[in-house]
Write a protein that binds this DNA or RNA. Structure first.
Lengths: 235, 235, 235, 235
DNA sequence: CATGAATGAGTATTCATTCAT
DNA sequence: GATGAATGAATACTCATTCAT
């Protein structure tokens, strides 16, 4: 009894590899400046076979974007619901964001530079996801202000500062360099928490809390390797 | 970049107008997605005439980039040499940078998104200019650390945080919105100066100093309008 | 067109079904605009298996063409040899032609629209068959003129009028509509026989003859159902 | 004072020539089977220059279709409004239709074979125009029936017979052959008018009327040469 | 100065066909 | 028998650039 027409078992594996390679090319040369021919050459496949896997060039962009936004949003929502103070959650969120930037720098380049190449429907989805992520950040910052841990300030402006500081990192970061995501997160949060902190409020010892948290909740660990793969594939 | 002789008196004026329009188109649609035809249509000139003014498409990109970097570097060097404390100079630099972002948002979009479309020689020039600007920032931050106004930290990392916070602003800023460059600069500097500040050091009243400075040195005023035009054209 | 040996018993049945589906797709979308993928999808078979049955895309066209011309020519020759007056034979031929048009409208569309996609050898065969059919018509018309049932006129022009009137029918006919092949044949023949008839010659009562004929010679009945299937499969 | 960007004086001339050549290629090989490369080769122009004139391949189809329908509908409406008997008008209409078929055989091939390659909007326009033409025919036939010049019959079926007889002519006609449009029109009308005529009604001497008409109304002459060019270019 | 016309290489995408498994 | 994977040529179309006038 032959199985109905469809895709073989190796299809998805190869498809993911092609998206990997596409992300790296797009990151290096830009989406518009990378031709399907370039990609075929890099993958080692003729154009026809390439299309068998990718459907269309724009579809590659969609896949790359959702590889970024899927894990990011998933993790952000997990963190937002933890029963800890808002600062610890901001610290965890910061590290998650930076971890993803470190681990998939090429995806982030594409994500940041070429999202305007998306067409209507896909673009709307993406912008919604971005907005969802921003609202998680906004919510945590607002909470910190309500608890007078942070001084009163425009929540929107605080959010934008948080995002500026983190999101621009992809422009210069070297994943194999001296700094890792944990270190950068610590530094950024020191700057932000001191910058945003209420004048008379002694900031809590976030780093100790974070360490304790990681010790107690290994299931929610931020180990980037496993997390990414798992979420990316099932996403 | 001298032009061959024989151009009439209106040549440069018209050339600058064409670059203006090109910048706005590139910002809206991207450099790769904007055709010379589009530009000709927007300018009201046939393609042949356009080439008389622009030389090549890539040349437009070079012009736009140097319109950004020229005034920015010029202003940065002026500020760096002022005989005031490093924090005031950082504050003035911050406002200059944001002023340029506000006033020429389209140029900045092109500058940030399409610099990879430049070829070797031009790209190297650009990266050098970026590096020069970063060194001005680095220098001021190091000075603040030496004077123990800022706590001891990696000067490189401090620089990158300063740049992250400012440079990512173009992604969301609305020049006609509620916030202007002066306001954002104030806010960013509060965050950074408190974040970077030495623990036991009371930060000086930068805003008052800045106001006094603007009152005493009107020639060095940050009035973006005049500054920009002047530098851009003679650049 | 014999197939290499080794095919199982269901081969020919499945093959015919595939040609059926191909004809309907080609008729709807055109031969050039229908891909082998489309066909595979409609049939429920992957492309590889499809080629096992069809040989090539052009071959499908050949099969469809001969499914039309085979029964048509066979029936035309049978009718031409009947020992009745030429008008009755024209009337029977007319109804046969229209019957085939009605029963296999999709085949006729392909036959009329896409025969130019055939290559040399196949095209020549097809054109010969068309010419053979035209000669049967010509012969009957000439006979009617010789017997002074029709007025003297160019036999070629009479033939072309007969063919114009019948062959263009596929463009608008609806097999499920109010008119059937028998009705249209009656109407066309009234027009043609009166139009072609010798001025002083009372046209015979063809319809009564036709009815009597059908009563007496059921073996030569025009029942389209059985006739078509039989010829098509053994063809 | 330079004129604004647009098209030079030779543009439209060359454009019309390209459409001529396209029509001849499409007629010979079919629209789908004719590539833009083929056309460029036939015209003696590179692809880029071709697109400068044609806009798109489908646009060529639209132009060809309207070159047929424009003059045809224009002439049909003129004829329908003449103050003569319906038979003379049918005779004039028949000759106009055949004249266009003779003069632009290649256009008619494309018109008849490839109209399904048109997309929604263009297709709808075309079908409307076809329907308009059919209604002119229907109107004249109905008029003849009302005046009892023709026997009572389904006006729709009479129309379809008229159209079958005329429209299928393009399949075999040779414009340089022994028959011209006037001759074919005469023959077709004899067939149709005798075929449709009321049994007891002596058909009028149409050919004499037609000749008189042509003598008296030279402005409405059917001279195909001048008529076509005039209408085609201004259309 | 400015135009319209021309080029040729490049773009994403499709598709009939083949073939190892 | 049937599949999924691969090919390579073809397709319509775009675009930066040039140049005679």
């Amino acid at each position: 009894m032959p199985r109905p027409p469809g895709h073989g078992p190796g299809f998805e594996v190869r498809r993911q590899k092609i998206i990997d390679i596409a992300a790296s090319l797009f990151a290096r040369q830009g989406y518009a400046a990378t031709s399907i021919n370039d990609l075929g050459h890099a993958v080692g496949l003729a154009k026809g076979a390439l299309y068998y896997y990718i459907g269309s060039k724009e579809n590659l962009l969609v896949e790359i974007q959702s590889r970024v936004m899927g894990p990011l949003l998933g993790r952000a929502r997990q963190i937002a619901e933890l029963d800890t103070g808002p600062l610890l959650r901001l610290r965890l969120l910061s590290e998650s964001l930076l971890t993803i930037i470190f681990r998939r720098l090429d995806h982030i380049w594409v994500y940041e530079h070429d999202y305007r190449s998306l067409s209507g429907e896909e673009l709307r989805t993406l912008l919604e996801q971005r907005s969802d992520f921003e609202q998680v950040v906004s919510g945590l910052l607002a909470e910190a202000m309500e608890q007078h841990v942070f001084r009163a300030m425009s929540p929107r402006l605080a959010t934008l500062q948080f995002l500026n500081l983190h999101n621009h990192t992809y422009q210069w970061v070297n994943p194999d360099g001296q700094w890792d995501a944990a270190f950068l997160s610590r530094e950024y949060c020191v700057t932000l928490f001191r910058g945003f902190g209420a004048p008379d409020h002694a900031l809590p010892t976030i780093e100790e809390q974070a360490e304790a948290f990681r010790r107690d909740r290994p299931g929610l660990s931020l180990d980037p390797e496993s997390e990414w793969e798992e979420i990316a594939v099932t996403d």
